[in-house]
């Protein structure tokens, strides 16, 4: 058993025998063991997860996610609590970050309400965003699977009304094959909680702030990390500082000249693993059940 691990160590480092775990296992040992188990179970996924992740650009959130960001080569769920629009904005921002300067992203949805001049604020331009207006949920899932598997895209966002655990699992496997990040967007009440997705986010709109007066400011959301494989839950208030900096002089930074914006933390409400023991215990439980399987 141990020999297998040693031969196919994901990091390629030579290990010097099986270390007897101490009574108080350090965080590092735990993480290491988790990685090994992950690797034994699903090599492709573990390789991808340990390798690259999409950073949100906020140290607090990135730190709460294993791998320092949203793992590429996996599927993440984003759901809107009461309205879809905030979740739409948050995922558009994620897509914009995933597209970066050279990548291309795909957005599959049924209605055509997306507005091009509004998308540019999230870094989504006609040269890096392809929209598929599908007729049915079946077409959306098919398109997502094709897009994820092709490996030609940076990220694929889909809005199927409902999704079965089997379909989600298919998407996850396609994402692993193509090394592409998948995002599932929907209303919370329509989505089924499934173990296949890497993370699950809940996005609710939040009051915006304008530094100069009683005007609406940049998009701001209450973002809850509801579930995260190998991680803990968390809750943050996040702003998307877009390129229209003229109404907010405080955001005048290196990004202000380009249309693409960046995330910013407004006020950390409560942190994930280190300060809320309950959620930490939840993560450990989850690990134990996976070990038992």
């Amino acid at each position: 058993m141990y020999n297998i691990v040693e031969k196919t160590d994901p990091d390629g480092r030579q290990r010097d025998g099986l270390t007897v775990p101490s009574a108080e296992p350090s965080q590092d040992t735990q993480g290491d063991l988790r990685r090994r188990i992950e690797f034994l179970e699903r090599p492709a996924l573990a390789k991808a997860a340990s390798g690259v992740a999409l950073s949100l650009g906020i140290a607090e959130i990135d730190g709460a996610l294993p791998g320092g960001g949203l793992a590429l080569a996996s599927v993440h769920e984003v759901c809107g609590a009461s309205s879809l629009t905030p979740a739409l904005g948050f995922s558009a921002a994620l897509l914009g970050r995933a597209a970066g300067r050279t990548g291309t992203v795909l957005w599959c949805r049924r209605s055509g309400e997306l507005y091009a001049p509004g998308l540019t604020a999230f870094g989504l331009r006609p040269d890096n965003l392809i929209v598929v207006q599908a007729k049915s949920d079946k077409d959306i899932l098919w398109t997502m699977e094709e897009g994820l598997r092709s490996g030609a895209l940076s990220a694929v966002l889909g809005e199927p009304g409902t999704i079965s655990p089997i379909a989600l699992r298919r998407l996850q496997l396609a994402a692993e094959t193509g090394g592409t990040m998948g995002l599932l967007l929907g209303l919370e009440k329509h989505q089924t909680v499934s173990a296949s997705a890497m993370t699950r986010w809940r996005v609710e709109t939040a009051e915006s702030r304008h530094p100069l007066g009683p005007w609406p400011g940049v998009s701001s959301w209450q973002v809850d990390l509801m579930r995260c494989r190998n991680g803990a839950r968390g809750s943050w208030r996040v702003e998307w500082r877009d390129g229209y900096a003229n109404d907010n002089p405080q955001t005048g930074g290196p990004d202000s000249d380009s249309k693409a914006g960046h995330f910013a933390l407004v006020e950390p409400l409560r942190h994930g693993p280190h300060q809320t023991p309950r959620s930490h215990a939840g993560g450990a439980d989850f690990e134990l059940t996976r070990l038992a399987v």
Binding site: L114, Y115, P117, G118, F122, R125
Partner: peptide, 15 residues
């Protein structure tokens, strides 16, 4: 991708 004549004011994401 560069819109030279696009609006300078903020525009909605959904129309």
């Amino acid at each position: 991708g560069t819109d030279e004549g696009g609006p300078r004011a903020r525009r909605p994401l959904r129309l």
